[in-house]
Amino acid sequence: MNVILSFIQAHLELTYVVILSIFLGVEVISRVPSVLHTPLMSGANAIHGVVIIGAIIVMGQAEADNYLALILGFLAVILGTLNVVGGFVVTDRMLEMFKSKKTK
């Protein structure tokens, strides 16, 4: 119990951010029409690509002699970028198709 309390105390802001974000995420998309489910999923997929920032930090902090960190970090940066770039581009194409269907 003490451990949890001290953790919350040490990360008070982050804890608030987590809780508010949970509610926000629910609120923001709770009235999405079902045609938009797949594009929204794809968009959300691109957004969790923020994990790339962690990959960049890992890569940037790796010591020059720590090959494991260098190689894995490099791989993480590539995969993360794939997630971000691919995610946004695919979402855009989906929505593009969506629009052209509508105007027909």
Binding site: I22, I29, A44, H48, V50
Partner: peptide, 28 residues
Amino acid sequence: AAACGGFLYNNPVMLTGGILVGSAGSIL
């Protein structure tokens, strides 16, 4: 998982982005 990274590096944008997708994704 991305939000875990946010905790690890005390990084607010990873945290909000990750949790937002986590909760929105569950509802979706």
